[in-house]
Design a binder for these strands. Structure first.
Length: 576
RNA sequence: UGGGACGUCGGCAAGCGGCUAAGCCACCGGGUUUUGAUCCCGGCAUUCGGAGGUUCGAAUCCUCCCGUCCCAGCCA
């Protein structure tokens, strides 16, 4: 079923999560006759995000692990919010993450059957057509501490209910005028069980069924039965559905579902990550109000945003596996995500040189017009990736921050009189600093090189502490580089906003995107295409932007920076 | 003040009555290094929300208490 690419790491020695423990037990006692069938059931009302990835990895991962199946099912019971655009993007994202579904279904595929089930319910005296308005239903539902009261329509005859329900379907009544309700218990302590609505009248064009229906089932009526129809064994969902499980079971019982063909609902805690928001409502809002450039803005926690940012699917998968599955409401440290990102990229990203904030270096004793080809390894973590040639000339660019006229303690990069190594090649020594006569800003560094140091070491064996990345001025390609940072400047935007009674958007990080122009990258990068993430040596991982980059005008997104212990030293030391 | 669920290191998370409470991230040292990256080595909960109790023995069982989350959509 699933592709081999998802096997990327065996489960470690830790015990299986509680869901797998339940399945293990089912395997032992034969509850489902050895069958495991899960499903990933997104509502097509938004783009998938990293929280969905957790669920995808869980559901598809379980199917794979137990030799079972996993369906992709669109939970399209509410045509008001659902769109084709989302149906497309969701499939794209699931596939990109590396999974292939066994069956592709829509809850709407079952509308007829669901309708028939509802008639069965009516016939059993377990559902009735209620004519109370939405407001009246709310008012008679009671509160957490007070029981609700019965609807005056609760005790209609089976015949009347059947007739009314059929006429609802036939379109004889206006939107919102009637609903079908389950007849359970208006005094139930669990509010979900107080005669929940099963069908509503809504003349709304449906992306899949068009105008075939004017009544639509609610989630509660559609979900469990869809699971049942598909032969799902383990219906895994998030914690907020825990209160609905009794209803899920009630529906199945009412229809006579029994093991081994009776789905079991299991709830786990949804993923939360610091410094971002995860609800589709809020993500939609950020898109609609233009706080980000779209669902695929590289700052978004959406799958498409992360893809554009340069995350490989493997990194997302290994993160999802590492965080575990439990029922504890938790929030994962963003550092955990970044760790798995770097771990993956370190292994596979080609090393290249790019100068983000260039300052010119002129090597005075290097012949004018001479061009040497320097051999550079592509990835020290993987020698099979070979080497490439890099042009070296008298005029180069290095990182402005790699030079200090007045170097702090333990700074072992370039400063007047100091000697450093240029990565893959010569040692250079700074001999003079050229400044703008009016601003005093450093505009150019004059250096000398040691011809004996070709290849990065000298016959006399002297050491240099610093190694800098560089690019030949004449050969460098100009590029735009976008540095991304966390979307929000506080760890819990939603919680904090609620506490301080302000809008969560007031915590948007104004520094979340910094655009650098005039960056100088090595020549080969002109040909780079989206989908490949590189390591810009000593800086971080970057990828060509899938929308805006072109050979004529390369644009790179910073996926994540490299860990930087010097920055820590400098910060800590400076303030101490 | 109703019901449901959850509380083990800064963040995740194993543990299911009996070795000195796994592992990962973060953090703090130290080593290697032509990326101050990677890699390697070491440190990091006498304690499991709290208080009682059962037991030879409890994070694991019982009682009470405290805290957090979810539920009053014709959303999912």
């Amino acid at each position: 079923m699933n592709s081999e690419s998802t096997h990327d790491s065996a489960r470690d020695s830790a015990g299986a999560d509680f869901i797998r423990a339940i399945i293990d037990q089912h395997m032992v006692d034969g509850t489902y006759e050895g069958r495991v069938h899960t499903r990933f059931p997104p509502e097509p009302n938004g783009y998938l995000h990293i929280g969905h990835a957790k669920s995808i990895v869980l559901n598809f991962g379980i199917a794979e692990q137990y030799g079972g199946k996993c369906n992709l099912r669109f939970d399209d019971t509410n045509p008001e919010k659902e769109e084709m655009e989302y149906i497309q993007s969701i499939q794209e994202d699931v596939r990109w993450l590396g999974f292939e579904w066994d069956g592709l279904y829509y809850a709407s595929d079952y509308f007829e059957q669901l309708y028939q089930f509802a008639e069965t319910l009516i016939q059993k005296g377990l559902a009735y057509v209620c004519e109370l308005s939405a407001d009246q239903i709310r008012e008679t539902r009671g509160t957490p501490t007070e029981a609700g009261s019965n609807s005056p329509f609760r005790d209609r005859s089976v015949e009347e209910n059947l007739d009314l329900f059929r006429r609802m379907r036939a379109g004889e009544f206006p939107d919102g005028s009637k609903v079908l309700r389950a007849k359970i218990d208006m005094a139930a302590p669990n509010i979900t069980m107080r005669d929940p609505v099963l069908y509503r009248i809504r003349r709304q064009h449906h992306p899949n069924t068009g105008d075939a229906w004017c009544i639509y089932p609610t989630y509660d009526w559609a979900h469990g039965q869809s699971d049942w129809i598909e032969g799902i064994t383990h219906s895994i969902c998030t914690l907020e559905f825990e209160n609905h499980r009794p209803l899920y079971d009630w529906c199945l019982d009412a229809l006579g579902a029994a093991v081994p063909n009776r789905p079991r609902q299991i709830e786990f805690a949804r993923l939360n990550i610091g410094y971002t928001v995860m609800s589709k409502r809020r993500l939609l809002e950020l898109v609609r109000e233009g706080h980000v450039s779209g669902w695929d803005d590289p700052r978004m926690p959406t799958i498409c945003g992360m893809r554009r940012r340069g995350y490989p699917p493997e990194a997302i998968r290994s993160f999802c596996r590492a965080i575990g599955v439990s029922k504890t409401n938790s929030q994962i440290d963003i550092a955990m995500l970044e760790f798995h990102l770097r771990e993956d990229l370190n292994r596979r990203a080609s090393r290249v040189m790019a100068v983000l904030d260039p300052i010119k270096v002129v090597i005075e004793n290097y012949p004018e017009g001479k061009v040497e080809q320097i051999e550079a390894e592509n990835n020290p973590e993987d020698p099979t990736t070979g080497t490439r040639m890099l042009p070296f000339t008298r005029e180069l660019y290095i990182e402005r921050d790699d030079f200090r006229e007045d170097p702090p303690k333990k700074f072992f990069r370039l400063s007047p009189g100091s000697e450093v190594r240029l990565k893959h090649t010569y040692y250079i020594t700074c001999t003079d600093v050229v400044k703008d006569p009016v601003t005093g800003a450093v505009t150019e560094l004059r250096c000398t090189y040691d011809p004996e140091s070709a290849g990065g070491s000298t016959p006399d064996g002297r050491k240099v502490k610093g190694t800098l990345h560089w690019v030949s001025a004449a050969h460098a390609v100009d590029a735009e580089v976008r540095l991304y940072d966390r979307l929000f400047s506080v760890e819990n935007p939603s919680d904090q906003a609620a506490r301080e009674d302000v809008d969560y958007k007031s915590f948007l990080n104004p520094q979340s995107l910094q655009v650098l122009t005039g960056c100088k990258v090595e020549p080969g990068l002109r040909e780079a295409t989206a989908g490949t993430t590189f390591q810009f040596l000593r800086q971080g991982y970057f990828c060509p932007d899938s929308r805006d980059s072109s050979p004529e005008r390369p644009v790179f997104n910073r996926t994540v920076s490299l860990r930087d212990s010097w920055a820590k030293i400098e910060q800590g030391g400076g303030t101490a």
